[in-house]
Amino acid sequence: MAAGDTALWLHNKLGSTDDLWSGRTICSQLSQERLQSIQECFHTLQPHVKVKLLLAFLHMPRRNTEQWKADLEEILSMAENDSDPWVTMVAEMLRMYPSTGTVNLDLDEVSGTFADVITDLKKMMKKSLETRMLPLECQFVNRSALNSIAGHSAQPIKHFTLKRKPKSATLKRELLQKSNEVSNNRKNN
């Protein structure tokens, strides 16, 4: 396919600014030839089309990313030098993706703002050690695993003194008693 046709195809597929999650829709139609054709027209694409194209890489079957690694990396390196900051950032995040399947986390040098935000938030985290928004898996895990995830928990706030147990305590006692009787009867019979 000629570079102009590829650009038009990408524009038709990814040109909408209403749906910014549509990158993956082109995955099944990518091939090595098409990726090479994309390299020729990449500079002519609109920034949001470039961004969506790069994000499509994440949705490709792993065997394809490995097979077309060189072409994907070529497109990523063109994108790393793009004038649009979003295009550059997405390319930097995906820089290692074709070879390792992981996201690049070393972004401080790429964007000063990113580095500043990380520094500020780390300071903020140190100030808010009292906050306990526990990860959702904590609900499932035994105490020793919980301690390995979130450290030892602080004592909950005591809002009052409990002067006697609520009705539920009697109910539990009665139920356990009944349960014992029934299971003893079963054993005896």
């Binding site: 999650w21 979003w86 996201v103 938030l121 306990r132």
Partner: peptide, 28 residues
């Protein structure tokens, strides 16, 4: 808003979630 904003936010928070102190808040 877009897949790029989602990826960027998750990457940023993933880095913070690795902090030994209080990282679990960000993980949540």
């Amino acid at each position: 808003h877009g897949e790029h904003t989602y990826l960027y936010s998750q990457v940023l928070m993933h880095i913070l979630a690795q902090e030994p102190k209080g990282g679990f808040n960000i993980k949540r």
